[in-house]
C-alpha cells in the first residue's frame, strides 16, 4: 500500500481553489478567440473582447475573474492501493477549501442551512464525490461552481420512446429558457441515463471535459455537434444581447439505465468553466 498523508490533499485543494478562480482555462481562451472570428454581432464581439480583457486582469493581478467564486465541487479518484493517513479525509478537503477561500480573497458564498441561510463564513462544506479506482494514485479535481448558471440547470425523466430527439429538445429548451441569465457564452453539460441522481452527477462531470474534445462514442459526438449548432442558432449570444455565440461546447456523458427510463440532466456552466485537476 502506498501511503499518502491527507494534508497533501488539503494543500492541493487550497492551491486549486485559488488558481482555478484566478486563471481562465486555456481551452476557454481558445474558444473565445475562435468565436471572435465567427461572431456576426459587433456587440457580441465587444463583450468577448471584454471577457478576454477581464481574464487578463484576473491573471495579472491575481484576483478572481468573477465575484461568484462558487461552491467548491471536489472529485476524488482514489487508487485502491492507496492508504490515506493523517486525519479525516473530508475534513482535510474542507480545510483546503477554507484556507483557499481565505488566502485567495475569494467570496464566501455557502450558507449552512438552505432555509435558515446563515453564511458559514469560510465557503465550506465542499460538495465531495469519491470514487475508488485501480492503482496507487489519487486524482483530484476541483471545480468551483457559480450559481448564476447552476440555477438555470434542469433535469427530467423522459420516456424511453422520447429517444434522441426528446433529449435534444429538452437540452435546447433548457438553454432557451435560461436565456441571458447564466452569463452566456456557456458550457452545457448533459447527463443521459442512470438514475435521477446519476444523470445529474454525470452532467456535472461532463463539464470537466475540455472545450473542443468530443465524446468518443460516435453517435454521442454527433449529438454534441448537432446540439451546439442548434443552441447557437437560438440567437441568445454573449450576455443574451444577441449573436452567434451562446454556447462554447456541449459535453454529453451517457450511462446504462432502466428499461422503463430515460433520465436526462442539463448542467449549465458560465464561460468561466472553472476546473483543475492534479494527480498525487
Amino acid at each position: 500500500m502506498r501511503e499518502i498523508n491527507v494534508n497533501k490533499i488539503s494543500e492541493a485543494v487550497k492551491e486549486m481553489c485559488i488558481s482555478s478562480n484566478y486563471n481562465l482555462g486555456n481551452d476557454v481562451v481558445r474558444a473565445f478567440e475562435n468565436s471572435r472570428e465567427t461572431e456576426e454581432s459587433p456587440v457580441a464581439k465587444k463583450i468577448i473582447d471584454n471577457l478576454i480583457k477581464n481574464s487578463e486582469i484576473a491573471r495579472e493581478k491575481r484576483v478572481p475573474m468573477c465575484q461568484d467564486t462558487g461552491m467548491a465541487v471536489v472529485f476524488l479518484e482514489i487508487g485502491q492501493e492507496v492508504k490515506l493517513v493523517g486525519r479525516d479525509l473530508k475534513e482535510a478537503i474542507n480545510e483546503g477549501v477554507r484556507q483557499g477561500y481565505k488566502e485567495g480573497f475569494l467570496r464566501k458564498s455557502v450558507v449552512e442551512d438552505p432555509l435558515l441561510r446563515n453564511n458559514t463564513g469560510d465557503n465550506t462544506p465542499a460538495i465531495i464525490y469519491i470514487d475508488i479506482v485501480p492503482g496507487d494514485k489519487v486524482k483530484l479535481t476541483v471545480a468551483p461552481k457559480g450559481f448564476g448558471s447552476e440555477n438555470m440547470s434542469r433535469t427530467k425523466m423522459l420516456k424511453p420512446s422520447d429517444g434522441i430527439s426528446g433529449v435534444e429538445a429538452f437540452v435546447v429548451e433548457t438553454v432557451s429558457l435560461a436565456g441571458p441569465n447564466p452569463c452566456p457564452p456557456i458550457v452545457v453539460g448533459v447527463g443521459v441515463g442512470g438514475t435521477l441522481d446519476k444523470a445529474c452527477q454525470i452532467a456535472k462531470m461532463a463539464l470537466l471535459r475540455p472545450i473542443g474534445e468530443n465524446n468518443t462514442i460516435e453517435y454521442v459526438k454527433e449529438l454534441e455537434e448537432r446540439l451546439l449548432k442548434k443552441i447557437n442558432d437560438l440567437g441568445i449570444g454573449p450576455q443574451g444581447l444577441g449573436g452567434r455565440t451562446t454556447a462554447l461546447a456541449v459535453n454529453i456523458e451517457v450511462f446504462p439505465t432502466h428499461i422503463a427510463g430515460l433520465p436526462v440532466a442539463v448542467n449549465i456552466n458560465c464561460h468561466a468553466s472553472r476546473h483543475e485537476e492534479r494527480i498525487i
Binding site: 471584454n50 471577457l51 468573477c66 461568484d68 441571458p180 450576455q239
Partner: peptide, 13 residues
C-alpha cells in the same frame, strides 16, 4: 441596466 456578467475583475476598476 446590464453589466457584463463574469467580468468582475474588469468592473472593479
Amino acid at each position: 441596466f446590464a453589466a457584463i456578467g463574469g467580468a468582475g475583475a474588469l468592473i472593479a476598476d
